[in-house]
Write a protein that binds this DNA or RNA. Sequence first.
DNA 1: TGCGTGACGGTTGAG
DNA 2: CCCTCAACCGTCACG
Length: 364
Amino acid sequence: MEQTYGEVNQLGGVFVNGRPLPNAIRLRIVELAQLGIRPCDISRQLRVSHGCVSKILARYNETGSILPGAIGGSKPRVTTPNVVKNIREYKQNDPGIFAWEIRDRLLADGVCDKYNVPSVSSISRILRNKIGNLSQPNQYESSKQASAQAGLPYNHIYPYSYPNTMSPKMSSPPGVPVTSISRAWPSPHTVSNILGIPNHFLLCEKSEASASLRHTSIAGAEGYPPKMEEWSSVNRAAFPAAHAVNGIDKSAIDADIKYAQPSSTLSSYVSACAYSPTNQYGVYSGSAGGYVAPGHHHWQPQSPALSHPGSGMGMHAGEIHSPMAFKHQQTREGDRKPPSPLSKQQQHEDLNNVHGLSLPTSSS
DNA sequence: TGCGTGACGGTTGAG
DNA sequence: CCCTCAACCGTCACG
């Protein structure tokens, strides 16, 4: 998957199977929707399948995020050190306790909730494998106790918990509840943290170093798990909120939007660091109408490292940062609460404020 | 015609 | 290092 070449959908749009649309397009979809443009028109205009438009808008309405979910990876383990520790305590206090009783107690004591409580079989396995010898200090417990936030629902720590990954300064924009989800599981160490390298420097080398990048930049900012799709995470973490409005870096957004509307006033934003091959598959050149048109910018991986070595510029153009991403901290697991997204009015204002765009109405 | 939904083939990354 | 698995993706077709 070095270079991923797009496929063309029925509308003539280019996409990469299995990969999310660029944030620029995702944002565009939301913007247009906010402007009252019908999804079908958005679909045609951006040449994105209506199903995708529908999905993105639905997600936005539900979570307030335009960002794709975390791809790949595994769920965090439910048998956290804290859970193991509690299980052990239960077992010590009552050697005859049954696994299902332990399970109940974990719930009752708030160690786990119904979403992350281990199964009875898991508990049995824990009892057998980890607590079988109670004289042995538990490896987890001793080393990673702090990381165990067993009481935390799964949502809190998984995918959509990167709202404020953007920039510390924008972690709490007005009206944007930031419940500080800062990850619950361990992995605070990142290249940037360790080396003290600003994320945006890392960003510029992502084409080649995307693999490492995905483990660095995002988490680098605030210790988020490198769990998110690298391109979204990267950008979120990397860009300072220069003109942040509601947490959105306008310049970054504008630049991003260049993909969609070269003909607009935004077209001047150009970035070599726009998308890495792996993360954004550098597509979507052309105009909103011709999103696909592999005309000006090829459908090539825009490898910043190659095209603009050492250039710190342009990286800002790569993405939209999660500003939109989490207008309200919302997780999207099954138990997620009803959205309570911003009102349409508010959302609209947000978008307009952010972009100050005068978006064209449907071209169709 | 517009749109929600699910199947599908794909990618990704933790374990 | 490779594999597995479960998450996600966008497209497509159907109703």
